[in-house]
Structures are given as C-alpha cells and as structure tokens.
C-alpha cells in the first residue's frame, strides 16, 4: 500500500471521510448492544418512560436478580451447553472422517458420493417431512434427537474436504510409505495440519448450536430440555402480556423490557467471550468453503 505521507490533499480528505463513515456504521452496529445493556441495568420505571438512551438510568441489578433466581433460566443455560458441546463433538466426529474420505482420489465413486452430499444443499425436503421423520424416528422431545439430527451439514463437509484436497499430496504419501494407515494419517498428519480449517468448522458448529432456536422450539416440549434461546423466546413472548408480572413490576423496580434486556445480555456474554479467540480463524475459514478453483 502507498504510504499516507504520499497521499495528495484530496486523497487525505477522501480517506478521512471514508474512515468517519466506517466509524458511524461501526457505532450503529455497536449501539443496539450498548442500548440493551443500558436498559438491562436501568430501573423498570426509567425504561418504561423511554428515558434510556446510552447509559443506565437509575442503576439497578433487579432485572438480573429476577432472571438469575429462576431455575428455568439455569436449566436452559445448562441445556444449551449440552447441545453446543455434545453437538459440536458429534459433528466433528461425522464431518472430519467423511471429509477425509471424500478428499482421497482412490475412493471409488468419489464423484457420486460428493454429489450425494452436495445435493442436500440444493434440495431440502422442508419442514414438514423433516418433522414427521423425526416423529417416526421417535426423536421428538429428545435431547439426543436434537444433538443427532443436526450433526452433519454438507457445507462443512465440503469446506473441510476442499482444505484437505489443498494439502500437498506428499504428506499423505510420506506417511503411507512410513506404514501409516488411513486412520493414522488422518489423526497424526491431516488433523494437525488442518487446525485453521477445523477451528473454522468447530466455530460454525458452536455458533449454530448456541443460536439454534427454531427446531428446538418445534421438537422439544419438556421445560427441562429447552435451550436458552427457546427459554428466551418464551420469556419474551410471555413477559409483556403477563398480568401477574405487570402487577409485580411496579414495586420490583424492573419491567418486561429490562428483564428481556438482561436475558439478552446473559445470552450474548458467552459469545462475546469466545468471539476474539475465534475471530482470527473465521476470516480465513469463510473463504475455504463453497467457491473452489
């Protein structure tokens, strides 16, 4: 890149204007989070009066106290961890060996296997047959069902397969001549060499699991199995028109809005904690998938 000192006056003005626009967009992206955090720490009265703009008004943690004493909140939080960790591990157990096999030129019918897997990205039976299939498999209202039924994703397989194919062939050949079998090659050579790609896929799995909402809502009935997102949804839907809640909030210094905001904050915090750690991977990882030379 050309050094700033060599910019003409016009270029400098242009660059500064663009930087300011970027700054505005960044603030616009960030603002809703700040706003929600501010609401969550404000009193119900202040929030209801629409006074919260940037910082908490009448600072209080009542909304959090209201949430954190609810056992359902903790159960759903725990469930989300189970779904996220279990689901991600299961996904990797499916995806990594499959991607390895599909990257091997010696696999007979490789083209057809690839087509078999890719086809599921282009054509989807849709909600109803999937739901009925889950019922036929006896996986309704089952934690294991949720973990298993969303374990594999064609896009992730193809992404990792592309990465494996991009590794120099000689790594595999050298290991093979050293006497390694395919499981050893995968475990001792390919997986260590593919850390960025596997990290990316792990990230995609974790994010999908952590945020998974629709199917958990549809498939799970028991209160003790629902993940955080479904709990959040229930709370959002019931808080505002819950008469009993409306009665209590005047004295309690929290409102439907501050409680909602508090739940949102609780749900986003884990994402924010892992986000910087994963960020370095996904920029590279996103480019591994789909579009292939």
């Amino acid at each position: 890149m050309i050094s700033w000192n060599l910019y003409s006056r016009g270029d400098k003005i242009f660059s500064i204007v663009v930087s300011l626009l970027i700054g505005m967009f960044t603030i616009a992206t960030l603002y809703p989070f700040i706003y929600i955090a501010a609401v969550s720490f404000s009193s119900g009265f202040a929030a209801q009066a629409g006074k919260v703009v940037l910082t908490p008004i009448q600072l209080t943690t009542e909304a959090y106290k209201y949430i954190l004493v609810q056992p359902e909140f903790w159960i759903s939080y725990r469930n989300t961890f189970i779904y996220t960790i279990g689901g991600t591990i299961l996904s990797l157990l499916f995806i990594i060996p499959a991607a390895y096999a599909l990257s091997r030129p010696q696999l007979i019918g490789r083209r057809y296997f690839n087509l078999f897997i890719a086809f599921t990205m282009w054509f989807n039976a849709g909600l109803i047959p999937f739901y009925l299939n889950m019922r036929d498999l006896n996986l309704l209202d089952s934690m294991f069902g949720i973990i298993l039924a969303f374990a594999v994703n064609a896009f992730n397989i193809i992404l990792l397969r592309n990465f494996f194919e991009s590794l120099p062939q000689s790594f595999e050949e050298a290991a093979r001549m050293d006497g390694a079998n395919d499981f050893q090659i995968l475990w001792k050579v390919f997986i260590p060499l593919s850390k960025p790609a596997i990290a990316t896929i792990t990230l995609f799995c974790i994010v999908a699991r952590w945020n998974g909402f629709f199917w958990a809502m549809v498939l799970l009935q028991s209160e003790d199995k629902i993940p955080l997102q479904v709990f959040l949804r229930h709370t959002l839907a019931t808080l505002s028109d819950d008469d009993e809640f409306a009665m209590t909030q005047l004295e309690a210094a929290y409102s439907a809005e501050t409680v909602t905001a508090a739940i949102i904050v609780c749900s986003v915090i884990p994402v924010l904690l892992v986000y910087p750690w994963i960020q370095k991977y996904f920029e590279k990882g996103i480019l591994l998938g789909g579009v292939k030379e």
Partner: peptide, 9 residues
C-alpha cells in the same frame, strides 16, 4: 522416499 517438497510435518 525423499519427496521434492520434503513432506516434513
């Protein structure tokens, strides 16, 4: 075999 790109892990 010694490979052209060495294939060192």
């Amino acid at each position: 075999m010694v490979f052209q790109n060495y294939a060192l892990y």
